[in-house]
Amino acid sequence: MKIVVLLSAGRHRVSGQPAPVPVELQALRLAVELGGEVTVLHAGPELGALADALGHGVGRLIHRVIADGDDPLPSLMAALTDNPPDLILAGRSGQGGEDAGLLPYSLARALGRPILADAAGLSAGPEAGTLAVEQALPRGARRRVVLRLPAIVTVHPAAPAPLPFAFAAMRRGVIESAPGISAPQAVEVEERPYRPRPKLIAKAAAGASAAERLKAATQAAGGGGTLLVDPSPEEAARAILAHLAALGLRRDG
């Protein structure tokens, strides 16, 4: 199986220095543990700290050199079309730049491939040419999905942590640099004057009295749940178990 992991130019959340995006390194671990031929692909002006990805279990990194501000999509498409992989992995979004998270979806549309979001685990599918994906859902839930290859999968931060960094492995890695496709990125910005929007009255207060309708219009909706102030360990444990049972994540008895 040929697997390509996409890397973006990220920055550290605290220092702001160039650094690999953690969720993309998690995607790299899923690719390595899945097995097969794993390659890392990046389109940007320079690699910088992204070369550290070679120390996390992959031996080949392809760099398509483009100018700062160019759209990386055409260069990525050209690299993926020359040697089409079975699986393309990407992070949920970048970190430190214009992180809209739309690139994997634009790439899937351009390549005509299906895309599945928020993978927390990958394994071989029940049939040849398929992939079993453990998809992360809200509130800690999981769902198993079987996806037919070739496809694109984005990785959720709930995936296993990146593999340990090995400096010797990074020195052994191979970096292949080649010119990319110059495509200035068109940014459309629309400015509108600020206009305060009226608050919507809750439907439950539609048939209520005037005082209740006024309260529904002016009072913020509560988040629900139970507030415990300095509870005992036993009381806190009972509240947590009851909350998990209400969410359907635990069965009593």
Rank of each mutant, 00 (worst) to 15 (best):
I240N: 01
A100I: 03
A236Q: 02
G125C: 12
P231I: 10
A53G: 04
D118H: 15
G248Q: 01
A168F: 06
P45I: 15
D118S: 10
V155G: 09
L34A: 13
R13A: 14
A221G: 10
M77S: 07
L30K: 08
E191L: 12
T226A: 04
V21E: 09
L200R: 11
G16D: 03
L131K: 14
N83G: 09
L241N: 00
P138A: 07
A67T: 13
E127F: 02
A27S: 07
P160Y: 05
A128M: 02
A239P: 06
A217N: 00
R213L: 12
V4E: 04
K2Y: 00
F165A: 12
A78E: 08
G224L: 04
S8D: 10
D70A: 04
Q26W: 00
Y105M: 08
R213P: 06
S15R: 10
R144C: 02
P20M: 04
V146I: 13
G121A: 14
A108V: 08
P150D: 06
R171E: 15
P20K: 06
R144E: 08
A43T: 15
S177Q: 13
A245T: 11
L103Q: 06
A166L: 14
T39P: 08
D230N: 13
A9D: 12
G69R: 03
G180H: 01
P231C: 14
G36H: 05
K199E: 13
D86N: 11
V38F: 06
I3E: 01
A151S: 12
D118M: 14
L214Y: 00
T130M: 01
G97D: 14
P22L: 04
P18W: 00
G223C: 04
E212F: 00
L227S: 03
A90D: 01
G59T: 13
S75E: 03
V145D: 12
A43D: 11
P184Y: 02
A205G: 10
L73N: 05
G248M: 03
